[in-house]
Amino acid sequence: MDSVFIIEKSIIIVAVFALTMLMAMYSTWAERKVAAFLQDRVGPNRAGWGGLLQPLADGAKLFTKEEFFPNTPNKFLFILGPAIAMSTALITSAVIPWGDQIEVFGRKVALQATDIDVSILYIFGVLSIGVYGIMIGAWASNNKYSLMSAVRASSQMISYEVAMGLAMISILMMSGSLSLKDITVMQANDGWNIFYQPLAFLIFLICSFAETNRTPFDLAECESELIGGYHTEYSSMKMGFYLFAEYANMFISSTILAVVFLGGYHFPGMAWVNENWGINIGALLGFLTLFAKICFFIFFYMWVRWTIPRFRYDQLMHLGWKILIPLAVINIIITGIVMVLFN
């Protein structure tokens, strides 16, 4: 029984890993296509049908490029930076429920790597260590522009983590549990969180943009001021890791948004499908629903990137500390009052 359990979990973990990598890969392609669409261009169309092989070509290019090491006394930390960035981008997916239970050979298998008691705190923990990848790598590059960029990136991430956590608290007040599975089940029963907590959703969405260092908050990569940002000194696949980690982060934060606010794998009529068509088809449809929601959020990230210009740094800090955090606190108070009045 125990070995079956280990095999089952290993399959799920490998599948989630492969899915994250695949999504990150094709997000780079989608980014170019969306950019092209928004700017009335064609986009990549040479490698494969509609440019579908473009990510593979990019990967081959990055792998075969010369590996350049800057003049730095910290070669080990220089290599450690991208490794941390990539690892932290990949380990968040362990606590996400990808679907309801399925039945394989009479065994009920939950489509989730692990359902720990403190899932949400785990995600915040991983987010907070994600800063190290950027900071250590940039410091070890021995380059002032890289260091400035890392300082920007990390202060931005620390500032927005606060508002993100406060926005999450109002959700936790409603669910009474830190497990993402419980939050999804609660939404399946009572309706999606976005209808109850639109303000928390908005704050969380904005903070996600800041956490993943995407436009309009991509001050860490401000070309006109900072050359290439924290990965200025990086080349070949080490830079590829940084870029890849950004897309993997984007995928994971889209997933968290979908799970926490849009009901995760829940779709209207899920109970009916489970009853009449069997739970395997229900779980499959649920997974596809979650996937559609994730794709919508990834598209939204790109949509915003090619629509809204970059913020100035003081505007970014003003928004984070003086607008989002007070709003999140007010949201917590309102949630508490409403819960006391209506329960």
Binding site: L121, F124, G125, L127, I129, V131, Y132, M135, V151, I158
Partner: peptide
């Protein structure tokens, strides 16, 4: 991890 590794040490490193 959140408080010590994620917040305090990041600020110190900074």
């Amino acid at each position: 991890i959140i408080v010590y590794a994620g917040a305090i040490m990041v600020l110190l490193l900074f």
